[in-house]
Amino acid sequence: MRAYTGRIREAAKRLLAENRVDVVIGFRKGTIPLMNEPYLIKSVDQVNQLYWDSNCGINLANYLPKRPDRVGIVAKGCDSRNIVVHILENQIKREQLYIIGVPCKGMLDRRRIMAERNGREPLFAEELEHKVRTVRYELDLTRDRNYFLQDNCRICTHRNPVIYDELVGDLVEEQQVDRYTDVRKIEAMSAEERWEHFEKLIEPCLRCYACRNACPLCYCPTCFVDEARPQWVGKSLDKTDTRTFHFLRAFHVAGRCTDCGACERACPVGIQVRQFTKKMEKDIKELYGYEAGVIADERPPLDTYRPGDPEPFFK
């Protein structure tokens, strides 16, 4: 995917030089192996800092809400879907945006690579064709790229941007996969087992709220967990408060979550928070046949009423 870098720079240069946009948001090369940094450039002389490879998992749509200027933004499939959600939710106007679309082949999961290396960070990493090589002292490891993909990328069915003004490469083939095997496993559990499952899942949670902050959907001016007057949620590590946070956040992103995986990527203790949001996603799909962030000119099912909406929960 590094080949996209040149095309991204070209596009950014043109857009800035022709004054089509005020800024371009993309990535610059990271300071450590397997990491890149979201980066905003304002002038043509900065374009060579823009960079692209398989370590651009952060969702750039997170930097858009309420921006007043004209923005060029580099967007892979999931970013583009969150841009659509932002447009639908009036967080940014389509006219303000110039979307540089990136057909995506999935992003690497740095944690998985570290785990494979016994929790040790590589001193050096490189992407080869279909492979990833990481080196540290005596351990030189080359593995299939697919082996190290982020969980959400493995089952992504919208790798191509759903909305764009130009593309930096040919469209890629979309995967035909069953997105919900893990959700069905949890659905099949008894209520007690399910409770156990989720208790274990969130047990290490520090309530740093990085999952929330990494999520483009979490743009509320004051999140309910931060509200101080009145304070809804306690600040200690009381389990009820931790559950409250996770459950409420999941419901708040229902019908909006694009499964971009930014939440899981950010979590410092590796909690699979998508286990909550994916169930919501599945329900919305089954009830309304709706996928978040795919159609830009139709109100989402949960913010409008249509006669004939299924109501199986009224009993």
Partner: peptide, 9 residues
């Protein structure tokens, strides 16, 4: 500051 998401990690 641009990229910071104020996550506190």
């Amino acid at each position: 500051q641009f990229s910071c998401i104020n996550c506190g990690i």
